[in-house]
């Protein structure tokens, strides 16, 4: 059993216990010993546990490609990534298994626990916009491409270091003055080239 499933079961157990205690509290008198005994558990200990376990799912449980696909606005990017005919950076990384798993998260991991506050705020903004439907299609990348997401894996490898232009441009690459995409192409299709393929997207879940 993987850690996500274990945390999920633990979360359910804690929530179930909390709900049972709530029902007991509703039936007990305010000054009764039963209330005094179970109130700290119901209103302090279990809620804190639920928040911790829930946030684990928010930050760590949503690293799978299938998790990203739950937002249908991401479907065109994911469909392109798994398309063997596509030559975008994401598709090449996927079909060659340069990234074996958690492909979306690996390149966008500044959303994760170790990411910056700005990335987390961006993630929450996306969540609000998606939930309220306050976005327009096609979605557009508002930020700036971060070379560090590429360099974290490629920096220091024999293949990377063997290319002369990487040395010539090292300072510009490290400071994001020149993007990796200038030479290697875009990671995802541009808005005109995107297609949904909803049926295939659903089968990935």
């Amino acid at each position: 059993m993987d850690i996500v499933t274990t945390i999920k079961i633990a979360g359910f157990a804690v929530i179930l216990a909390g709900m049972v205690l709530c029902l007991i509290i509703m039936r007990s008198d305010y000054y009764s010993p039963v209330y005094k005994r179970i109130a700290p558990l119901t209103f302090l200990v279990l809620p804190v546990l639920v928040i911790v376990l829930g946030n684990y799912h928010v930050f760590e449980g949503s690293q799978k490609v299938s998790s990203c696909l739950r937002c249908h606005v991401m479907a065109p990017m994911a469909m392109d990534m798994i398309n063997p005919e596509s030559t975008t950076l994401a598709a090449r990384h996927y079909k060659n298994r340069w990234i074996a798993k958690k492909q979306c998260f690996t390149c966008h991991k500044d959303y994760g626990l170790n990411g910056t506050i700005k990335a987390k705020l961006d993630g929450f903004r996306h969540l609000v916009k998606y939930s309220l439907g306050s976005y327009t299609l096609p979605v557009r990348f508002r930020g700036r491409f971060n070379n560090q997401n590429c360099l974290e894996c490629h920096r220091g490898t024999q293949k990377f270091e063997g290319i002369k232009s990487h040395h010539t441009l090292r300072e510009r690459l490290e400071s994001n003055k020149t993007n990796c995409t200038h030479c290697h192409g875009f990671p995802h299709p541009n808005p005109i080239e995107r297609h949904h393929g909803e049926a295939q997207t659903v089968s990935l879940k």
Partner: peptide, 29 residues
């Protein structure tokens, strides 16, 4: 039965329900 304890009991019960829904089905909504 004292009604003073009910608001927070209902509040926490709703929070438990929403948390259970998210953990069972972790969709964006």
């Amino acid at each position: 039965m004292n009604s003073r304890k009910h608001p927070k009991t209902i509040i926490i019960f709703v929070a438990y329900l929403l948390s259970a829904w998210f953990i069972f089905s972790p969709d964006p909504f």
